[in-house]
Protein backbone atom coordinates (compact mmCIF):
# COMPACT_ATOMS: atom_id res chain seq x y z
CA UNK A 1 0.00 0.00 0.00
CA UNK A 2 1.26 3.45 -0.94
CA UNK A 3 2.03 5.73 1.93
CA UNK A 4 -0.03 8.92 1.80
CA UNK A 5 1.73 11.92 0.32
CA UNK A 6 2.58 14.76 2.69
CA UNK A 7 0.80 18.13 2.34
CA UNK A 8 1.66 21.36 4.21
CA UNK A 9 -1.18 23.84 4.62
CA UNK A 10 -0.56 27.41 5.85
CA UNK A 11 -3.29 29.79 7.03
CA UNK A 12 -3.37 32.43 9.77
CA UNK A 13 -6.89 31.40 10.77
CA UNK A 14 -6.83 28.39 13.05
CA UNK A 15 -10.28 27.12 12.15
CA UNK A 16 -9.26 26.95 8.48
CA UNK A 17 -6.39 24.66 9.49
CA UNK A 18 -8.69 22.46 11.59
CA UNK A 19 -11.22 22.20 8.77
CA UNK A 20 -8.51 21.34 6.23
CA UNK A 21 -7.04 18.66 8.45
CA UNK A 22 -10.42 17.12 9.19
CA UNK A 23 -11.48 16.96 5.55
CA UNK A 24 -8.15 16.03 3.97
CA UNK A 25 -6.46 13.74 6.51
CA UNK A 26 -8.18 10.65 5.08
CA UNK A 27 -6.33 11.09 1.80
CA UNK A 28 -3.20 12.97 2.80
CA UNK A 29 -0.71 13.26 5.56
CA UNK A 30 -1.51 16.87 6.54
CA UNK A 31 0.90 19.26 8.26
CA UNK A 32 -0.21 22.77 9.15
CA UNK A 33 1.40 26.13 9.98
CA UNK A 34 -0.04 29.50 11.14
CA UNK A 35 2.45 31.66 9.24
CA UNK A 36 4.89 31.63 6.34
CA UNK A 37 7.81 31.62 8.75
CA UNK A 38 6.46 28.57 10.55
CA UNK A 39 5.85 26.94 7.14
CA UNK A 40 9.50 27.42 6.18
CA UNK A 41 10.61 25.78 9.43
CA UNK A 42 8.41 22.76 8.74
CA UNK A 43 9.77 22.43 5.23
CA UNK A 44 13.28 22.33 6.67
CA UNK A 45 12.33 19.53 9.06
CA UNK A 46 10.06 17.53 6.78
CA UNK A 47 11.87 16.92 3.51
CA UNK A 48 9.19 14.50 2.21
CA UNK A 49 6.47 17.16 1.98
CA UNK A 50 5.47 17.29 -1.66
CA UNK A 51 2.59 19.76 -1.78
CA UNK A 52 2.41 23.18 -0.15
CA UNK A 53 -0.86 25.14 -0.03
CA UNK A 54 -0.86 28.63 1.42
CA UNK A 55 -3.44 31.28 2.28
CA UNK A 56 -2.83 34.57 0.47
CA UNK A 57 -3.64 37.29 2.99
CA UNK A 58 -1.56 36.85 6.12
CA UNK A 59 0.25 39.26 8.40
CA UNK A 60 4.04 39.48 8.20
CA UNK A 61 4.41 37.47 5.02
CA UNK A 62 1.75 37.10 2.33
CA UNK A 63 1.12 33.73 0.68
CA UNK A 64 2.82 34.79 -2.50
CA UNK A 65 5.85 36.13 -0.62
CA UNK A 66 6.07 32.82 1.16
CA UNK A 67 5.91 30.87 -2.09
CA UNK A 68 8.65 33.07 -3.61
CA UNK A 69 10.81 32.48 -0.54
CA UNK A 70 10.14 28.77 -0.19
CA UNK A 71 10.59 27.98 -3.90
CA UNK A 72 14.15 29.28 -3.73
CA UNK A 73 15.16 26.62 -1.20
CA UNK A 74 12.68 23.95 -2.22
CA UNK A 75 12.22 24.28 -6.01
CA UNK A 76 10.90 20.70 -6.29
CA UNK A 77 7.82 21.26 -4.09
CA UNK A 78 4.46 21.93 -5.68
CA UNK A 79 2.94 25.19 -4.51
CA UNK A 80 -0.70 26.28 -4.46
CA UNK A 81 -2.56 29.29 -3.13
CA UNK A 82 -5.93 29.20 -1.39
CA UNK A 83 -7.53 32.61 -0.90
CA UNK A 84 -10.76 34.55 -0.51
CA UNK A 85 -9.60 37.14 -3.08
CA UNK A 86 -10.18 37.10 -6.75
CA UNK A 87 -7.14 36.52 -8.96
CA UNK A 88 -5.18 39.74 -9.51
CA UNK A 89 -2.25 40.61 -11.81
CA UNK A 90 0.36 39.41 -9.34
CA UNK A 91 -1.25 36.02 -8.93
CA UNK A 92 -1.86 35.70 -12.62
CA UNK A 93 1.87 36.29 -13.11
CA UNK A 94 2.69 33.58 -10.58
CA UNK A 95 0.39 31.18 -12.41
CA UNK A 96 1.88 32.10 -15.77
CA UNK A 97 5.43 31.59 -14.54
CA UNK A 98 4.36 28.23 -13.06
CA UNK A 99 5.54 29.40 -9.65
CA UNK A 100 2.23 28.09 -8.41
CA UNK A 101 0.36 25.23 -9.94
CA UNK A 102 -3.13 26.33 -9.04
CA UNK A 103 -5.06 29.06 -7.31
CA UNK A 104 -7.96 27.82 -5.19
CA UNK A 105 -10.63 30.16 -3.89
CA UNK A 106 -12.37 30.20 -0.56
CA UNK A 107 -14.75 28.71 0.34
CA UNK A 108 -12.54 25.80 -0.57
CA UNK A 109 -13.79 23.07 -2.84
CA UNK A 110 -11.94 20.18 -1.18
CA UNK A 111 -12.85 17.67 -3.86
CA UNK A 112 -11.25 19.89 -6.43
CA UNK A 113 -8.15 20.43 -4.28
CA UNK A 114 -7.84 16.69 -3.76
CA UNK A 115 -8.22 16.09 -7.45
CA UNK A 116 -5.59 18.69 -8.40
CA UNK A 117 -3.12 17.42 -5.80
CA UNK A 118 -3.52 13.86 -7.00
CA UNK A 119 -3.09 14.92 -10.62
CA UNK A 120 0.15 16.69 -9.77
CA UNK A 121 1.53 13.98 -7.61
Amino acid sequence: MDSKCKVLYIDDEKINLLVFMKVMEAKFDVLVALSGAEGLEILEKEPDVTHVISDMKMPEMSGLEFVHEASKTFPDKRFYLLSGFAIDDEIQEALDSKLIISYFTKPADYNKIEKVLVENN
Binding site: E13, I15, N16, V19, F20, K22, V23, A26, K57, S83, G84, F85, A86, T105, K106, P107, A108, Y110
Partner: peptide, 28 residues
Protein backbone atom coordinates in the same frame (compact mmCIF):
# COMPACT_ATOMS: atom_id res chain seq x y z
CA UNK B 1 -16.43 44.72 -1.73
CA UNK B 2 -12.78 43.73 -1.90
CA UNK B 3 -12.59 43.79 1.88
CA UNK B 4 -15.92 42.15 2.35
CA UNK B 5 -15.20 39.38 -0.13
CA UNK B 6 -12.14 38.33 1.76
CA UNK B 7 -13.74 38.75 5.12
CA UNK B 8 -16.80 36.82 4.12
CA UNK B 9 -14.91 34.08 2.29
CA UNK B 10 -13.13 33.01 5.44
CA UNK B 11 -16.29 32.33 7.45
CA UNK B 12 -17.78 30.75 4.34
CA UNK B 13 -14.75 28.50 4.29
CA UNK B 14 -15.55 27.40 7.85
CA UNK B 15 -19.14 26.72 6.91
CA UNK B 16 -18.29 24.91 3.74
CA UNK B 17 -15.46 23.02 5.45
CA UNK B 18 -17.76 22.03 8.30
CA UNK B 19 -20.31 20.86 5.79
CA UNK B 20 -17.75 18.89 3.78
CA UNK B 21 -16.37 17.25 6.89
CA UNK B 22 -19.85 16.19 8.06
CA UNK B 23 -20.66 14.94 4.56
CA UNK B 24 -17.48 12.86 4.55
CA UNK B 25 -18.34 11.48 7.98
CA UNK B 26 -21.84 10.56 6.88
CA UNK B 27 -20.67 8.90 3.68
CA UNK B 28 -17.63 7.10 4.98
Amino acid sequence: TAGVAHEINNPLNYIHGGYTAIKNLVEE
